[in-house]
Write a protein that binds this DNA or RNA. Structure first.
Length: 303
DNA sequence: AGGGGAACCCGTACGC
DNA sequence: TGCGTACGGGTTCCCC
């Protein structure tokens, strides 16, 4: 099977795409479609669109060039060079726009060289036909995911309201300590606050707190500088390892080399309530009391 | 201001 | 067996 016929990303089996999964999707997509030209756009399910009507969306994206696909937070960002409205006196009037894809739970981007199987086709919300005949589809079973079309200015305003990237070297230990300790929320909630720090969701918050030996329910402002520094270090290790493993547990997921997201094998907390802590062998505690979400931690070695 | 709660959506699990 | 209903999940928006 040619690479172009393989799905690049599928739905997560549990949890949603967080930073490592979104990074994997964006890297794969960038390698496949950077430089491609969109020849036709179809909107099958307009309710996933944001910030533009279907007509505006089609008018802007048709004939656009995909210049880059990358990740910010849990978003796949598709940079477009579009024909911007009416050209003046024959002058070039190209402008940068962004397709901002938020897969949430069941959203996914697929590249396909052939018509989709009926089971996939039923859930396609938006399709771009590329000039070489391939299709870039956004598929979403539950349709809580979104596809927004933003001008460069709008995107800048939107993304600048998000917190820093945890893997960005410009985020220093003192900066992280300051932003996490400014919150009186439980530290797990503060870690997942996208305005404070971008890209961390339930899976990696649970994992990082276990590795750092910090009780998820503690007030974030109660952390010492040293604990905050340890937390950032462990968070970075977990995210980096997961990206290397191409993310956590995608159902039916296969990358271009036919491999699955393998980080599920390295999970020590998430999904392991009631099982033995791999550090102290006591039973891990599962609770929904902190933020209404599933939290798993070791009451013995997380303090 | 910042925090709480509803809305968004539908497959899955569960009750009768 | 079949139908109905509750639930989950992150983000946004509204309200207090």
């Amino acid at each position: 099977m040619p690479l172009s016929e393989m799905p690049l990303s599928e739905m997560p089996q549990s949890g949603m795409p967080e930073l490592p999964e979104t990074e994997t999707i964006a890297r794969d997509l960038d390698a496949e479609v950077r430089g491609a030209v969109v020849s036709q756009v179809e909107v099958q399910r307009a309710d996933v669109l944001r910030e533009a009507t279907a007509a505006e969306f089609i008018a802007s994206v048709t004939h656009a060039t995909i210049t880059r696909v990358w990740r910010r937070a849990k978003l796949v960002v598709i940079d477009l060079l579009t024909r911007g409205g009416v050209a003046q006196e024959g002058a070039r009037n190209e402008r940068v726009q962004h397709l901002v894809v938020q897969p949430r739970f069941t959203g996914g981007l697929l590249i396909a060289g052939e018509p989709l199987a009926a089971t996939d086709a039923a859930y396609v919300c938006m399709s771009c036909t590329l000039a070489d005949g391939r299709h870039l589809h956004y598929k979403d079973v539950r349709r809580l995911g979104t596809v927004a079309l933003m001008t460069a200015e709008r995107f800048e305003a939107y993304q600048s309201a998000l917190g820093p990237e945890p893997l960005d070297a410009r985020l220093t230990d003192p900066m992280f300590s300051g932003l996490i300790r400014a919150s009186k929320q439980p530290v797990k909630v503060a870690l997942m606050d996208q305005k404070r720090l971008a890209g961390v969701g339930n899976i990696y918050a649970n994992e990082a707190l276990w590795h750092a030996g910090i009780d998820p329910s503690r007030e974030a402002r109660s952390l010492s500088d040293t604990e905050a520094t340890t937390l950032l270090l462990k968070l970075r290790e977990v995210l980096t390892a997961s990206i290397a493993a191409r993310g956590t547990s995608f159902r039916d997921y296969r990358d271009a080399r036919g491999e699955r997201g393998r980080f599920v094998e390295q999970l020590v907390a998430y999904g392991r309530a009631g099982l033995a802590c791999v550090r102290c062998e006591r039973r891990l505690v599962g609770t929904h009391a902190i933020d209404g979400r599933g939290t798993v931690f070791c009451a013995t070695c997380q303090r």
